[in-house]
Amino acid sequence: MIGISRTKFRDFIPVLALLLLVAGIAVLEPGFLRPANLLGVTADTMTLFLMASGATLVIMLGSIDLSIQAVASMASCIVAVLLPDWGPLALLVALLAGAISGLFCGLVVNYLRIPSFVATLAVGGVVTSIAYWVSDTRSVYIAEEDKAAWLDWATGTSFGIDNEVLTGLVVLAGLTVLLSFSRFGRLVRAIGSQERAVIATGINVDLVKLLAFIVAGFMAGLAGVVMAARLGSGSPTLANEFLLPAIACIIVGGTAITGGVGSIWKTFVGALIVAVMRIGMTFVGVTVFAQQIVFGLVLVIAVAITMDRTKVSVVK
């Protein structure tokens, strides 16, 4: 490894894993490598990536956001219900609702001093109830003309590329700038690495956390909107079963659950790994129900590899 330090090398293990998985499937099914197919797989992965992208910031803080699947479902309901009457305003309301859910998560963590794991679980419960109330506990279908008019940006194609992929790339670029080039991003990493030192330095740690939760809620809301566009309906259970894969792709990408280390491109790679794994499993005949077992296992292994053990002397 000339010129590449060991930590740098570790950064690229997920990329190697992704290439190996792709190569493995390509051996079994050479058609997998066709550009159109790869693009399609990437497009299918983007909702998962959107959901995980904002939550990456929260995990880098050393916290966790368990409300994202509830928020995405709620956003899908809001879009489906409001679109006929409100048009594009419905999108705005859905995204705003996501951001507000994140705001509440952050407020509960900051002002009630409750661990994020409990706070976001509780807010997630509230959000789910709101989704049921908004949708009147049913799936709400989106009429074709509404979809064509207002959701084409999410599901159509531009320059021959699926719009999901473009949305994903825009988010990837935007959050990378936020995380790597802004003071906010640096403070997120700092808090995850050693919060007490950041507090003692006189930084408004609560504000940074609040913003991170808001971003996570907003991105979960966006994921819900895109999901609704793809499926043509909104439902209070639309994003169920997405939480575990979302957390898995953050961690599999190499972001440490203990905070301080991570980036958005890692989550992007992680999302692709999860998606390719899923395809691979379907290919070799693992049923959808059994796939959660594999995700669970991969998550545990990835956490064990990436976590910073100097930070955790006692595991609870």
């Binding site: 990493r189 050693q194 030192a197 003692a200």
Partner: peptide, 12 residues
């Protein structure tokens, strides 16, 4: 624990 942020760089 209170003086340095171990994961950040020197300039940071």
């Amino acid at each position: 624990t209170e003086g340095i942020v171990p994961g950040l760089g020197v300039s940071e």
